Simulated assay, not measured.
Amino acid sequence: MSVLVVIPARYASTRYPGKPLVALRGPDGEPRSLIRRSWDAAMSVSGVDRVVVATDDERIRSHAEGFGAEVVMTSVECRNGTERCAEVAAALSGHEIIVNLQGDAPLTPAWFVEDLVKGLRAAPDAEIATPVLRCDGATLNALLADRRAGRVGGTTAVFGAGGRGLYFSKEVIPYTGQSHAEDAQTPVFHHVGVYAYRPEALAAYPSWDVGPLETLEGLEQLRFLENGRHVLCVEVQAKGRKFWELNNPEDVPRIEAILAEDAHPNRA
């Protein structure tokens, strides 16, 4: 059964316009765009049948096709990456699972996506799955520092029995206090911006109204929870790798530093 990976990318980001084309230097000093590094991450995943970039912007299309990516143009009316993925899935039908590997997550290791697909296949009641990574003290302190500085950084997740998602927030939840040893294991889970959808749930998503929680948090996955859908949180292991998403300009040096630590950050 086939797996389609979609990398949604838009130019007109409110917090960081032009983000997909921002250059990130790797360990060899070579600058590669954010969308190129996200494409490289997707191409390193095993068990995937097709990878496409989904955008509504000709600058991104031209750039992505220039490094060999397959591009599907989508409507400017898409309100988020999930709606963009739904449009692609309708055009490229016949896939068992559609993966949304967001274009701002170039540090996503291949096994995060592989474990996510495996987790969704093993949970027939789940309609969407997403990875979560237990924060060590250093990561949690970085999340808290972003919030104190007024920056919207990473997203955190809470889930119940069997990994069933309860809530996702740009605040740091659950509350744990304000000081943590860097190597401590914490009860906070960093939400990794990747999703695996069953086609039926993804097709229904654009028809649902945007609810108050999605509006307040600006988190697309909350629309599934607000419509009573089963969201599966799959815990993944860092295996010594650091993970961070590019949400703000201040994240560029942080991601470049992580890239510099490993010449092949997307390989097990």
Rank of each mutant, 00 (worst) to 15 (best):
E235T: 08
I128S: 02
N100L: 14
E127R: 14
V72P: 09
V5R: 05
A268R: 14
V234D: 04
K239F: 12
L101D: 09
G153S: 03
L140D: 05
D146N: 06
I258R: 06
G81N: 08
V76S: 13
V152F: 15
C233E: 05
V3I: 06
A201N: 09
S169V: 06
E235D: 05
Y11H: 15
D40V: 01
K242V: 08
G218S: 03
R61N: 11
F189R: 01
V158L: 08
G211H: 09
I60Q: 08
D104R: 13
C85T: 04
P8C: 11
G162H: 09
V51M: 07
T74R: 11
V132H: 01
E96Y: 06
D136Y: 04
N248K: 05
L246Y: 10
A260H: 10
C135F: 08
H180L: 03
E87L: 02
E226D: 03
Y11P: 15
F168G: 03
V22A: 12
V88F: 03
P124N: 02
V188Y: 11
G160S: 11
C78I: 01
L143K: 07
A42Y: 04
A89W: 03
L21R: 10
A257C: 04
E261T: 13
E96H: 12
P106D: 00
T186G: 00
D104N: 11
D115M: 02
A268G: 06
R267N: 02
H230V: 02
V72W: 11
V71W: 14
E261F: 06
E200Y: 07
G119S: 15
L116P: 05
I128F: 08
P249I: 01
T55S: 13
W111N: 03
D49T: 02
V72M: 11
A41I: 02
M73E: 12
R15S: 10
L166Y: 09
A161S: 15
H191E: 09
V6I: 11
K239Y: 14
K170G: 15
D146I: 08
R241H: 12
T74V: 15
R254A: 01
T155Y: 09
P174K: 00
L133Y: 05
L213T: 12
A196R: 06
T176N: 06
V172W: 13
T176M: 09
G160P: 15
V158Y: 04
S62M: 07
P131C: 14
R36A: 10
P253E: 10
A257R: 05
S33F: 12
R25H: 12
R10V: 07
E114L: 10
E226C: 02
Y175K: 10
T82R: 01
A42W: 00
D57G: 14
D104Y: 05
A122C: 07
R10E: 11
V53L: 07
E214I: 08
M43A: 10
A238M: 12
W39H: 13
V231D: 04
L24K: 05
I35E: 02
H190L: 15
E127W: 14
R151V: 09
T55E: 04
F243G: 00
P212M: 05
Y16V: 01
F189E: 13
K118E: 15
V52P: 07
A90E: 15
R164L: 13
A145D: 15
W111F: 12
E226F: 02
I97W: 14
E96N: 00
R25V: 04
